Every structure is written in structure tokens, then in C-alpha cells.
Simulated scan of single mutants.
Amino acid sequence: MSDEEEFLQKARAGFEDLCRALNMDEEAGNEAWKNYENTRRNFTLEGSERHWLACALYVACRSSVPTVGKGTADGNYVSLTRILRCSEMSLIEFFNKMKKWQDMAELPAAFRHGTDRLERNFTVSAVIFKKYVPIFRAMFRPPSEEPPRAHRSRKQRAPQV
């Protein structure tokens, strides 16, 4: 067995583990693996293979699939959060890898716009979070962090007659 075949066998095992963890449907899994193999054949994928597999799975999950009845659904509803958690990837790493993946896989503009919108929304949320954390902490301090109260005199007053 060549090094390439051994590598692909390990990558496939990791991919199948990831699919099981995500409860991925077979059609999306097969599409993701096919796209991963094609991209890997044409480009050098630097970094964690698991991260690149996560990019392929994300694209496959967001592809339109036929539904029972009329119309199509926007993918199979496997959440990005679950994909990132199972692939041990941060959101920032995901956006960096996904931009490269979109270029390598020549994804349509509509898909790229969706990913860009998601990244912008995350960036706005992160900025707001940074601004409001100090305010929130100042207003809602845990009881252990509250400043001590002024001590009152414990001296008894003389009864008024």
C-alpha cells in the first residue's frame, strides 16, 4: 500500500467518524467525500485534514436537497456549531479555511455571499460583546465581589421615656 493510499484510508476513517458524530445523511456524506477527494487531488491542503473535511461537510450540508412534497430545503440542517465542535475547529479558523475552500472548489457566488454574511454577523456580534462585557460585569456583580457595606454602630440606644 502506497503512502497516498494509506493517507486516504486514514482520512476516510476520520471522515466516517465525523459523519457518525454529526448523524450525517449518506447522500450529503458521499457528496462531501467526493468534493474533498477532488479538491485534494488538485490542491495542497495545509493544516488539519479534519478541518478540510469539515469544510467539505459544511458545503454538502448547505446544498439544496429535495424535500417530501414540493420545493427544496436549504441543506440538511446539520448546524455549523456541531460541525465545528465535532471537528475541533474554531469559528475564526473555519472562516479562514472556508474562504480557501470556496476558491478551490469554485463554489457559486450565492454560497460565498451566505458565508460572507455569516462572517459579518459574527464580527458585529463579537464587537458588541466586547463593548458590553465590562458594562454587564459592573451592573451584575456576583455577591462575593460586592464592596463591603459601611459598618453601623452596634451600640444600643438608650430607651426613650
Results as ranks from 00 to 15, higher is better:
residue 79 S to V: 00
residue 50 R to S: 11
residue 62 R to Q: 07
residue 127 V to P: 00
residue 115 T to G: 08
residue 110 A to Y: 05
residue 27 E to F: 04
residue 101 W to N: 08
residue 92 I to E: 11
residue 4 E to A: 11
residue 98 M to Q: 10
residue 112 R to E: 12
residue 31 E to R: 10
residue 56 A to T: 05
residue 4 E to C: 05
residue 13 A to M: 06
residue 11 A to K: 04
residue 80 L to R: 04
residue 3 D to I: 14
residue 28 A to G: 04
residue 86 C to T: 02
residue 73 A to Y: 02
residue 155 K to A: 12
residue 137 R to M: 08
residue 119 E to N: 11
residue 16 E to M: 13
residue 62 R to F: 01
residue 41 R to K: 15
residue 34 K to C: 06
residue 59 V to E: 09
residue 87 S to T: 02
residue 89 M to Q: 09
residue 37 E to T: 15
residue 38 N to M: 07
residue 44 T to Y: 12
residue 154 R to H: 08
residue 150 A to T: 09
residue 34 K to N: 07
residue 76 N to E: 05
residue 101 W to A: 13
residue 11 A to N: 07
residue 160 Q to C: 13
residue 71 G to S: 00
residue 156 Q to A: 13
residue 113 H to R: 13
residue 51 H to L: 06
residue 117 R to Y: 06
residue 29 G to V: 01
residue 49 E to T: 08
residue 144 S to E: 13
residue 160 Q to W: 13
residue 108 P to I: 04
residue 10 K to Y: 09
residue 153 S to H: 06
residue 34 K to E: 12
residue 41 R to T: 15
residue 117 R to H: 06
residue 104 M to D: 15
residue 26 E to C: 01
residue 19 C to V: 08
residue 62 R to V: 01
residue 161 V to R: 06
residue 102 Q to E: 15
residue 90 S to Y: 01
residue 53 L to T: 02
residue 147 P to M: 05
residue 154 R to G: 14
residue 56 A to M: 05
residue 2 S to P: 12
residue 132 Y to F: 14
residue 153 S to D: 13
residue 149 R to P: 08
residue 47 G to L: 09
residue 105 A to W: 02
residue 64 S to N: 15
residue 153 S to R: 10
residue 3 D to Q: 14
residue 57 L to F: 03
residue 14 G to E: 15
residue 62 R to L: 03
residue 1 M to N: 09
residue 56 A to P: 02
residue 112 R to W: 07
residue 158 A to L: 12
residue 134 P to M: 03
residue 69 G to N: 04
residue 145 E to K: 13
residue 12 R to T: 10
residue 159 P to M: 09
residue 78 V to L: 04
residue 127 V to T: 11
residue 147 P to C: 03
residue 109 A to E: 14
residue 60 A to H: 04
residue 10 K to V: 11
residue 73 A to C: 04
residue 91 L to H: 02
residue 95 F to N: 09
residue 116 D to S: 10
residue 11 A to W: 00
residue 58 Y to R: 02
residue 125 S to N: 09
residue 22 L to I: 01
residue 40 R to K: 14
residue 6 E to S: 11
residue 54 A to S: 03
residue 97 K to E: 10
residue 102 Q to C: 15
residue 104 M to S: 10
residue 86 C to V: 01
residue 43 F to M: 11
residue 112 R to T: 14
residue 131 K to N: 08
residue 102 Q to F: 04
residue 5 E to T: 14
residue 135 I to Q: 11
residue 153 S to P: 10
residue 32 A to V: 09
